[in-house]
C-alpha cells in the first residue's frame, strides 16, 4: 500500500528540476556544433540564405525541443526517460546542424559536416523506437497497478482529486458501457454502494485533514477486498460504489457483507492523536435490470437510505 501511495505522489509533482543535466548537455552540444561551424567556415551573405529551408529545418528543431521539454516535465527520471530524451536530443541536434549550414558556408574540403547533419538522425530515431517499446512495457506494468481502479478506458480528467480512484462521472460512463456489454452478452451486472456511518463526526472531532486521510486509507482497504475485474469509484464524500461485472445479486450481497466486515475490523489510527477509530459501514447491493445508468445509480442510492431508516440514529 505504501508503494502505491508514494508512486502516486511522485507522479503528482512533475518538474524539470531532476532533468537539468540532460538539458545542459544538449545545449552544450548545440553550442559546440555552432562554434565548430564558425571556426571552419565563413558566414553566408544575406543573399545566400534559403529562408524556406531555415523555416522548415529551424521550425522542426524548435518543435523537437518543445517535445523534449514536455517529455521531461511529465516523467520522473529513469530508463525509459533516458532512451526517449536521448533520441529526441539526437534528432534535435541533427536538425539544428542542418539549419546552421544555411547561415555558415563551409569550404568544399570539409566533409565532417555531413556526418554531423545526417549521422545523429537515424541514431536518434532508433533510440526513440527502443524508448517507445520500453514505454509500452512500462505502461502495461502501470495498468496492472491501476487494476480495480480503471476499466476499459482511461480519462485522467475524471480522476478524483483526493483518493487514487475515479469519480462519479467516470463511473457513469463505465456503467453505460458495462450495461450495454452485459445486455449484449446476456450476463448479469451488479453494483454495491458503501457509506461510512457518522463520517462527519470524524471530520468534526479530528479535523478535515484527518477525514481526508481516512478516505484515502479506506479506498486502499476496499481495493484489497475486491476481485481483479471489479471497479471501485468514489461517488461523493464518504460514499463508494463498486461495479461488479458478471455478478448476480447473491454474490453482490456477499461482497457487500465482506466489505462491511473489512471496514468493521479496520484498525485505523488517527495521525494526530493516534486514536483508534471504530468504523461501521452501511452497504446496498443490487443487480441491474433493464435500466439506464442514471436510474440504476438513483435506485442504489435509495437502497442506502432504506438501510439507514432501519438502523437507529447514532445519537
Amino acid at each position: 500500500m505504501q508503494n502505491t501511495l508514494s508512486l502516486f505522489h511522485l507522479a503528482a509533482a512533475p518538474s524539470l528540476r531532476p532533468h537539468r543535466s540532460t538539458l545542459a548537455a544538449l545545449l552544450l552540444c548545440a553550442n559546440i556544433g555552432l562554434l565548430l561551424y564558425l571556426a571552419a567556415g565563413t558566414p553566408a551573405g544575406w543573399a545566400g540564405i534559403d529562408w524556406l529551408d531555415v523555416v522548415g529545418e529551424g521550425g522542426s528543431a524548435l518543435l523537437t525541443l518543445v517535445w523534449l521539454v514536455m517529455l521531461l516535465r511529465s516523467r520522473p527520471p529513469g530508463r525509459v526517460t533516458r532512451w526517449l530524451s536521448g533520441g529526441l536530443g539526437c534528432v534535435f541536434f541533427s536538425l539544428w546542424m542542418d539549419c546552421l549550414d544555411e547561415f555558415v558556408k563551409l569550404p568544399d574540403a570539409v566533409t565532417w559536416d555531413k556526418w554531423l547533419e545526417s549521422g545523429p538522425m537515424p541514431v536518434g530515431l532508433l533510440l526513440i523506437t527502443v524508448g517507445l517499446y520500453h514505454w509500452h512495457c512500462e505502461q502495461r506494468a502501470i495498468s496492472a497497478q491501476m487494476e480495480k481502479r480503471e476499466r476499459l478506458f482511461r480519462e485522467h480528467r475524471l480522476f478524483d482529486k483526493l483518493t487514487p480512484l475515479a469519480g462519479a462521472e467516470y463511473l457513469r460512463r463505465q456503467l453505460d458501457l458495462s450495461l450495454r456489454q452485459a445486455r449484449a452478452e446476456r450476463r448479469p451486472l451488479s453494483l454495491v454502494a458503501l457509506d461510512i456511518d457518522d463520517f462527519d463526526a470524524v471530520n468534526r472531532r479530528f479535523g478535515h485533514g484527518e477525514g481526508d486521510a481516512l478516505l484515502l486509507a479506506l479506498s486502499h482497504l476496499l481495493l484489497l477486498n475486491l476481485r481483479h475485474q471489479d471497479l471501485l469509484c468514489r461517488l461523493a464524500g464518504d460514499r463508494f460504489v463498486v461495479l461488479l461485472p458478471d455478478t448476480g445479486e447473491r454474490v453482490a450481497q456477499d461482497i457487500a457483507c465482506e466489505l462491511e466486515a473489512a471496514v468493521a475490523s479496520f484498525a485505523y489510527h488517527t495521525q494526530g492523536q493516534d486514536e483508534r477509530l471504530r468504523l461501521r459501514a452501511r452497504t446496498a447491493a443490487l443487480m441491474a435490470v433493464d435500466e439506464d445508468a442514471e436510474t440504476l445509480l438513483r435506485r442504489l442510492n435509495l437502497g442506502l437510505r432504506d438501510e439507514r431508516r432501519d438502523t437507529p440514529p447514532a445519537a
Binding site: A168, E169, D195, D200, R204, L235, A236, G237, D238, R239, L297, N301, L302, R305, R308, P313, A314, A315
Partner: peptide, 30 residues
C-alpha cells in the same frame, strides 16, 4: 453537529438538476 442526528430536511433548489446530483445525495439528502 448540534443535534447529533441526521434530520429529514426537504430541499428545494432554483437551478435545474446538475450532472453531479450524487453530491447532493451524499452531502444533503435524498
Amino acid at each position: 453537529a448540534l443535534t447529533g442526528r441526521r434530520l429529514p430536511w426537504q430541499f428545494h433548489l432554483a437551478h435545474p438538476q446538475p450532472r453531479h446530483v450524487e453530491q447532493y445525495w451524499v452531502h444533503l439528502g435524498d
